[in-house]
Nucleic acid binder design. Structure first.
Lengths: 110, 110
DNA sequence: AACATATACCTAAGTTACCAATGTATTTAA
DNA sequence: TTAAATACATTGGTAACTTAGGTATATGTT
């Protein structure tokens, strides 16, 4: 597993990107998808994810729909129109961020 | 300027990389170099940098040498042998991190 | 039948790595 | 002469996490 401290601040753009590519997803699904996609390199905790989803919903970036599967509840989230724009912006920032980090990616002299 | 929250946790590997490529540097020089290298995209604050340098020195990753330039003091830092290894490791983590982030770099369906 | 694991939601308390603000002092440019 | 740049440093606050815990259903596993 990668050093987790590097991912601080990246959770929001990652979630937005997933929802930009998946129409709708529920919390637990997101944690599983991220773990699967990154082959375990990134494991997002529920203690980080759920408060984030609630905040984004409160900000009008996401909407939520409850659904029952058997006796168990799922809360599906999807991007609002505002969220679509937020996602695009976040993606640009993420790409700039990656490009900036690449500037320091040198083998070193010695 | 990029969204700063993304860079949380990246300061240490960035500083280690700079010192891996520059033999020795002093604090203020690092702030200027980062700003210059990233064309202003990343501006590290002194409130973040100096405590980090002190910690890395305390951990044996860096050594410091004081020097006078006129009446003004400079504190030069360089990597110790331990620091060289720490840098290499941090670079690997940074590359893994970037590769993982790239997994989410998609244009989105809509 | 009992138990662990997976699925599915959630919150509260603590940690960490930063930012913003401030302080001191010298040097240089307007 | 006064602002900006150079150069060090610390303190207080905060955002985004982690760790730990709680509730409940569903599905293997012995």
């Amino acid at each position: 597993m990668n050093k987790q401290s590097l991912y601080k601040g990246c959770l929001e753009p990652i979630v937005l990107q997933l929802l930009g590519n998946h129409d709708r997803m529920y919390g637990y699904e997101i944690t599983v998808k991220v773990k699967e996609l990154t082959k375990g390199a990134l494991q997002i905790t529920e203690g980080a994810l759920y408060p984030l989803l609630h905040r984004l919903e409160g900000e009008g970036v996401l909407t939520a729909e409850m659904e029952h599967v058997g006796n168990r509840m799922r809360k599906y989230y999807r991007l609002t129109p505002v969220g679509q724009a937020t996602r695009k912006n976040a993606l640009n920032e993420l790409n700039d961020f990656i490009a900036t980090l690449q500037l320091f990616n040198k083998p070193a002299i010695s």
